[in-house]
Simulated scan of single mutants.
Amino acid sequence: MAHAIVEWTDNLEGDADIHGLLSLIAAEMRDADGVFPWGGIRIRGIKLTDYVIADGKGDDAFVNITVKMGAGRPAEFKARFFAQLFEKVKAHFAELYDRRYLALSLYVEEADEAGSFKHNNIHKRFRKDS
């Protein structure tokens, strides 16, 4: 399980490559040497239309990424992987960040397996023995 929820303000519409960001996150997870099983990767975007940023007077914008994953990955891996991912997110938005007010954030949450229920046959497609 590795799910990423990307929220962004609608004032980025037409100015930011959100689908490119979703694809970037998915590719990074797929390229993590099997740490994230491909069949469990879910990247989704939510455009926000109702929000207030700072004093509510500027054309401020934000992109927030929340990653939810199962527990058990080593702390060293998480620190390295997510620091590198955030650097790639910053690079993805570098030009936009240079010309407008923009807040970027990334949060990582580990799911409590006792409170996590799943039914998924997508994994089967990626098994080498299938």
Rank of each mutant, 00 (worst) to 15 (best):
G40H: 06
A114M: 15
S130W: 00
G45A: 08
G115W: 08
E87L: 12
F62A: 07
A54H: 03
W8D: 05
I122A: 07
H3W: 04
S105L: 09
A54M: 00
H119E: 10
A71S: 14
I43M: 00
W8I: 00
D55H: 11
D10E: 15
H123Y: 09
R100L: 13
E113F: 12
D60C: 05
D55K: 03
L22E: 10
V63G: 08
I46F: 13
T9E: 06
I41K: 10
E110S: 07
F62G: 03
I46N: 11
G56E: 05
R127M: 02
D17R: 10
I43L: 01
W38P: 13
K57W: 05
V52P: 00
V63L: 05
A27P: 00
D60T: 05
A114F: 15
F82D: 14
A32L: 03
S130N: 10
R44I: 02
H92Q: 13
K57T: 11
A114W: 14
E95G: 15
I25E: 04
P74F: 03
E110P: 08
D55G: 03
K88S: 07
R80D: 13
A75F: 06
T49N: 11
E110D: 14
I25G: 02
I122L: 08
F82H: 07
R30M: 15
S116V: 15
K78P: 06
V52R: 10
R44Y: 02
G40R: 13
T66R: 00
D33I: 07
F117L: 09
T49G: 12
D10R: 03
K57I: 06
H92P: 06
E95S: 15
L106D: 08
V108Y: 10
R100G: 08
